[in-house]
């Protein structure tokens, strides 16, 4: 008789599979981070390129660009697996569906959120941030992008299978992302000004932990409904 697979094993298989697929088709996963860099580049062009003035606008520009780019990336989260029946097989695998979706969200974050967090300090320096702000910005974006991926998983689950659901997806996800934006932008601003940014970073971390515990359950319910 066959031995059942552990849930850790299942999660690691999903990560392996998604990374393998991403490396075979890299173009898709580079789009969101390219989008992020382009949007942050547009701000100096649309505003005043004087660095001291850009510096004041840098946190807002970074976070709005990060929010938009992660909503853009959500399209890749469940779409393919929903279309070819893979999500149905996840639901019938006997493993916790929420857990498998958390693994999928994790691989999605590795492919879109992590590059974003790494690119953000570069973009920040371009917007006039001092090098001393880099660690703070990196941590803020790391935490923020995780919580955006988790919130996004709920929205992507709800709009899975809706044709041209992109605009709807942003309408659902962006209001939910307001706390992340507020705390993240504040932490970034404090890092740029050279103040200790611990307070907003703690709040951001709290949001992320909260998201990890509850968002997969909501996403699982949402995807199940969308699969019917």
């Amino acid at each position: 008789m066959s031995r059942p697979a552990s849930s850790l094993r299942a999660a690691s298989l999903i990560l392996q599979r998604d990374l393998t697929l991403a490396f075979r088709r890299p173009g898709e996963w580079l789009q969101p981070v390219a989008f992020f860099l382009i949007v942050t580049m547009l701000f100096p062009l649309a505003l005043d390129p004087e660095l001291s003035r850009l510096r004041a606008l840098a946190p807002g520009a970074l976070w709005v660009a990060a929010l938009l780019s992660s909503v853009l990336a959500l399209e890749f989260l469940f779409r393919e697996d929903g279309r070819d029946g893979t999500l149905e097989q996840f639901a019938l695998s006997g493993q916790s569906f929420a857990w498998l979706l958390l693994a999928k969200t994790a691989s999605h974050w590795l492919l879109t959120g992590l590059p974003l967090a790494i690119a953000a300090p570069l973009a920040a320096v371009g917007l006039g941030a001092p090098a001393s702000a880099i660690p703070g910005i990196l941590v803020a974006l790391l935490l923020g992008s995780v919580s955006l991926s988790l919130l996004g998983a709920i929205g992507a689950g709800l709009t899975l299978g809706i044709r041209r659901g992109g605009a709807l997806l942003s309408l659902l996800v962006l209001p939910l992302a307001i706390p992340t934006l507020v705390f993240g932008a504040r932490a970034t601003a404090m890092a740029i000004q050279g103040e200790p940014a611990a307070a907003p970073l703690y709040l951001l971390a709290a949001l992320t932990v909260f998201g990890i515990t509850l968002a997969p359950l909501a996403a699982a319910a949402a995807v199940r409904i969308s699969l019917e």
């Binding site: 939910l176 307001i178 706390p179 949402a222």
Partner: peptide, 24 residues
């Protein structure tokens, strides 16, 4: 049912949004 999931997620987030906006 999809709306219900969204509404529940929303109502859980309402206090967080409220707090963050006040904090901001």
């Amino acid at each position: 049912r999809a709306g219900a999931v969204l509404a529940i997620v929303g109502i859980v987030n309402v206090p967080i949004v409220h707090y963050s906006v006040t904090w901001w």
